[in-house]
Structures are given as C-alpha cells and as structure tokens.
Simulated scan of single mutants.
Amino acid sequence: MNAIKMPQRGFSPKEFETRVERARQIMHRHKFDALLVSSPPNVRYFTGFDSQFWESPTRPWFVVVPLEGDPVAVIPEIGAPEMALTWMKDIRTWQAPNPYDDGISLLKSTIESFPRKYGRVGTEMGREMALRMPVSDFLKLRDVLALEIADGSPCIWEIRMVKTPAEIDHIHYICQIASDAYEALPASIAVGESEREIVRKLRIDIARRGADSTPFMPAISGPGGVPQIVCGPHDRLVQEGDVLFIDTGSTFDGYFCDFDRNYAIGNISDDAKRVHDALWLATEAGIKAAVPGAKTDDVFRAMAKIIEDAGAIGNNVGRLGHGLGMQLTEPPSHRLGDGTVIVENMVLTIEPGMEYAPGKMIVHEENIAITRDGPRLLTKRAPREMPIIR
C-alpha cells in the first residue's frame, strides 16, 4: 500500500480565499472586472464544488469571480444543497432546465451588479478551455451584457498553472499510488494475456490503493515498440518480444497524475533496449533542465538532443511534456516556441519519446513539481531497464 500519508480531502476556506486573492492580482494585469467560468475544473478550482452530475449535459453551471466582492455561484436549484457545503456564501439559483432562459438573465444581472473598472469579462474561450453552455446562450449573453466578453483563458491558466502546496500534495499522493501499482503489476500478469485484461488488473489495483477514478489508461503492445500512445487497450495478446506501454491519468480528490511505464514481454530486441535507455537518460536531462527561470523550450532542447543522437526518425506526440493538475493535460507544453517561463510550484510532466523504426515508438514520462531549488520528483522514478514479464 501507499507509504505516504493521504492528504485531507477538500480544501479549507483559507485555501480558496488565497486562490481568489491571487486571481484578482492576475485579473488586474489582464484588465478584467470579472472571470466567468463554467467548466468542471474551473468551477471546482474556485469553489470546491464537485458532482458526478457533471456527466449530464442538460444544465449549465456558472461561477463569477469579480475583481471586487465575493465570488458568486449561479447554478441550477438542484445543485444548491451541495454548493452550500462549500466555502461559497453567495449562491444564486434558477429552476433548470429552462431552454428559454437557462440562467442567462440571472447571470447577466449578477455580472452587471459588480463595480466596473475595465468594462471586460474574461471567460473560457481559448486554448485547452471550453465553455460548458450552449453556444447560442453564450451569444445571447454576449449580445445583452453591458460589458465586453473577452478570452480569459490566458488569465485563467496563469492562475492555475502555479499550484498551492495543498494542490501539490494531492498530485504527489496520486502519483505515489500509481507508482506503487505500476511496480506491482509484473507479478500479476503473464505472457499471453490481453492488453484489456492487463489494464483491468491495473485499474483495480490503483482503485484498491486509494485512487478515486482512472479516466485515462491507454495501453498498447507491439514487437519492439508501439505505433501510438493514446488508444487502447485492445484484445491483442502480449507476446514474446513485445514492448507493453501503459499510461495512466488517475485521480485523487480532483487532481491527476499522468505518467507511463514500459514493460518487456520476455526478451526484447537490442534496439528496443538501447532506445529505452536513451529515453531514460533524456528524462533525466528534462528533469534537470526544469528549473525556475528556464523556459519550456529549454526543457524540450535538453531532451531532444539525446533523442536525436539516439537515431529518432519521428515523434507523433508533438511535444515532450506538459502541465498537470485538475486536468490530465494543462499548459504549458515542452515544445519549441511555447516560451513559458518555469516558476516555482508549477507541476509538469517530462515526456520524451521517439520513433526509432516505422511503427516502433517508446515513450517515458515522469511528473515533477518545481521548487525554488529545482525539480522534485512526484512519481517513483522508472527503472533504467524495463521490467520483464514472463
């Protein structure tokens, strides 16, 4: 079982007050009078509210974070009892669903009730964000609101990319759970089992160790490597000479881990061993490069040099790692041109991968937190040699 202490579920009102106060400082720089959020991660980030009811797309949910005044939840009546258990004090509701006015007039009056300095509201219109409301309702709100609605995604990501200590503790905990399950996996599987059955065993073990869910677990196998890393598992039986790749995005209390492990099915080719070792070294280089003040481009270059020297012919992933938190993947991206400056308390994945022959790819991944002294590993480091399954 996991050796580290489980963090307390949920967060204190002080934690949310700190988040909102920091958000306001960033909102000033982006010249927003308020942020309007509607997607589950952003609503949860500012309020602590969570519900399995997010699976139903029937009703929209809104939270307004003003530059002055307390945040306001503008939500369907059905969610009010649970929202009242959070730190939120101002909860405004309407009877939903109502296709003629699904909270739009209430949302309009709420936004317009706050003081105006810049005449702009920021919302989830940009990269890696999505509005959780009908586009027709968004257009209606834009037409009737007495303020400009602008892309607030850069502002929201600037807020969320830097984690609090409590958030990092949550991510560390789920990383340790998945690490322990990965280490235990070889003892429970054998040559001739299907990818699907292997994943089923790993999912069960991760849940048994304390994860809340595992919404992401692609797995694929192939002789000496795999052609892709985002699909599967399939019914293919793992065979002698295969590399088995498994990635997981498991969660604890709303926060993700995201890292993979590779397993050798019996004896694998010398080329696969060589590439695996090169990627292990590239991971080391990427971790060491992720220091405060460096840029994501620098982290990319540190890994890319080793990968290129090892004879890479491609990498269909398009980047060598990314941000991590309440979503499986978050900004920034380790790629040339991203240009994000790495700062203390970011949580990042380090993910070098390479195709070394047509249809044969191997990928490594670890999760780290950035401290003032440099990177701190949140996962348990993968072994330099692939664990062997016989």
Score class of each variant (00 low, 15 high):
135 V>R: 14
195 E>T: 03
182 Y>D: 10
77 E>Q: 12
202 L>T: 04
326 M>G: 06
270 D>V: 14
47 T>R: 10
263 Y>D: 01
93 T>H: 07
172 H>W: 09
327 Q>E: 15
246 I>D: 00
166 A>N: 05
284 E>R: 09
54 W>L: 09
254 G>A: 02
165 P>F: 03
169 D>F: 04
119 G>C: 09
187 A>R: 12
208 R>K: 12
124 E>I: 00
5 K>T: 12
13 P>V: 10
31 K>F: 05
280 W>T: 03
110 T>G: 00
61 W>E: 15
322 H>V: 08
266 G>R: 05
211 A>W: 00
69 G>E: 09
70 D>M: 14
272 A>L: 01
329 T>M: 15
219 A>K: 03
10 G>F: 04
26 I>R: 11
142 R>Q: 14
190 A>F: 09
160 R>T: 08
168 I>V: 11
11 F>W: 11
149 I>D: 07
314 G>K: 06
108 K>Y: 03
28 H>Q: 14
28 H>W: 12
94 W>H: 11
303 M>K: 00
314 G>M: 04
200 R>T: 13
365 E>G: 13
8 Q>Y: 10
122 G>I: 06
233 P>L: 06
129 M>I: 00
46 F>M: 08
122 G>M: 03
182 Y>S: 06
39 S>K: 00
272 A>V: 11
176 Q>P: 03
304 A>P: 01
216 F>E: 02
205 D>S: 15
53 F>S: 10
192 G>R: 02
334 H>F: 12
330 E>Q: 06
194 S>H: 01
244 L>C: 07
352 P>Q: 06
193 E>K: 02
237 L>D: 07
241 G>M: 01
361 M>S: 10
195 E>R: 02
304 A>R: 11
299 V>F: 01
343 V>N: 13
151 D>C: 09
87 W>G: 13
336 L>P: 07
8 Q>L: 12
267 N>W: 10
298 D>K: 00
386 M>S: 07
118 Y>N: 07
67 L>N: 05
370 I>Q: 05
377 L>E: 11
354 M>C: 08
182 Y>P: 04
387 P>Q: 07
292 P>R: 04
188 S>P: 03
361 M>N: 09
15 E>L: 06
112 E>V: 07
229 I>R: 01
216 F>M: 00
44 R>G: 13
234 H>G: 12
347 V>F: 02
143 D>Y: 13
135 V>D: 15
